[in-house]
Design a protein around this nucleic acid. Structure first.
Lengths: 224, 224
DNA sequence: AACGAGCCGTACCGTACGTTACGGTTCGGT
DNA sequence: ACCGAACCGTAACGTACGGTACGGCTCGTT
């Protein structure tokens, strides 16, 4: 973004990632791989070598270094979006399972090497540049899970299983109970092994705590 | 830390910050100021200009860029350490006040421009270099507040006001309830104004939730 | 007054890296 | 078979910045 306003290359220079070609996806995978292995010292030369492509191609496809980083973040985000958790039946048990699944999934994501690396570069970017990398990561992380979880919470409320006034506040409580200090510790380099067993246990514990705070035993129809 | 094992300058090259001179403290303040204003693009030249000193002096005092950053982090940490919360009387009301104070203080710290800037550089460092900046920030942030809060929790348990098995787990729950998504959002550049009123309200709410999960109404002497 | 330590300001050096340019190769279209 | 587009590999350029050297100034000491 140092001297933009050039010929916008093919297409991924704008804010719309559209769909990268298979070859471009391979390049972006190389970026993600290098990001995890080498950390912040990601150079265009290293990307070109890892992806077996020329730097000229990188600049033609992605404009500049920021464009490449942005495309990589969006590429990773596009593959994280998945499970839509189709709710029909909604009883106390299935609600608990849904919440626990959400917490476990979130813990898995934020403790993955890819997520840690991407959050680090986005945070480093937010420190100096004006680029929207941080916003992109937020939109596909914190806010995306909020958008997916809030409907579940509201269905739970409609079914009389949960009680709260502010959906956003309830979600943020759940977010805090599930994540606690995990993300900041990992971002700061703390060794913190989270195996599947720990994640499942912590997710269940967070769900229990959330239900203690917001749960209602049985459907309570109508108003007060 | 790039090529240590030189003549260790005066003294702040090791792990012991000891006590910086007034002049050195002014330099470190300049670092913190620049870190907030300019973000990650902190250059030695800019520090020298801001502090009205020569680069030669910076290198004599702090060894290299990492040494300067480390000293700045520890300098900031040394001034954050304060309130020891001397507990003698401990009833339900004072426990609630203590917890709420802790939460409010923590929210104030992590939402301050200085903390955000320091956490960003520490995270960026944790990404590439092997430096212990991230560990220093963790020790003076997350772990420091844990060491100060855990005794309060255990006194509360001894007084029959709280019930938990694992002090660490109880603290992490409190940490999550208080912090929720605040820190990650701020680090990623999200606009999130936290005034004194919001902090006080959120701290009180987190305390209420924590007491709902872990509180016991009255002293319950002896075992079951 | 003379001296030396410490420090400021600045010029300078070496390197890393983003970005560009260019020659050579592959490959689909005609 | 020929052409042009796309792309690979690499050399080259410009700049930013960490680190060093040095001349001059200030100030405390004798």
């Amino acid at each position: 973004m140092t001297s933009a306003a050039k010929t916008p290359a093919s297409e991924p220079s704008g804010a719309d990632p559209a769909e990268p070609t298979a070859r471009q996806a391979a390049v972006l995978d190389a970026v993600l791989t290098l990001l995890q292995e080498k950390g912040g010292q990601l150079t265009m030369t290293a990307v070109a070598r890892q992806a077996s492509c020329s730097k000229e191609t990188l600049y033609k496809w992605f404009g500049d270094r920021d464009g490449l980083l942005t495309a990589a973040v969006q590429w990773q985000a596009s593959r994280v979006r998945a499970g839509s958790y189709d709710r029909q039946k909604l009883d106390a048990s299935s609600l608990r399972d849904s919440l626990s699944d959400f917490a476990a999934n979130w813990l898995s994501v934020i403790s993955s090497a890819t997520s840690i690396a991407l959050n680090r570069v986005a945070i480093a970017h937010a420190a100096s540049k004006q680029s929207n990398l941080g916003q992109i990561v937020l939109d596909n992380g914190r806010f995306a899970i909020g958008d997916r979880l809030k409907p579940v919470l509201e269905e739970g409320r409609a079914a009389g299983l949960l009680a709260f006034d502010d959906t956003e506040a309830a979600f943020r409580t759940f977010f805090g109970l599930a994540g606690r200090d995990v993300q900041i510790r990992l971002l700061l380099g703390d060794k913190l092994k989270l195996g599947k067993a720990e994640i499942a246990r912590d997710a269940a514990a967070a769900t229990d705590q959330f239900l203690t705070l917001y749960g209602r035993a049985a459907p309570a129809p109508a108003t007060a």
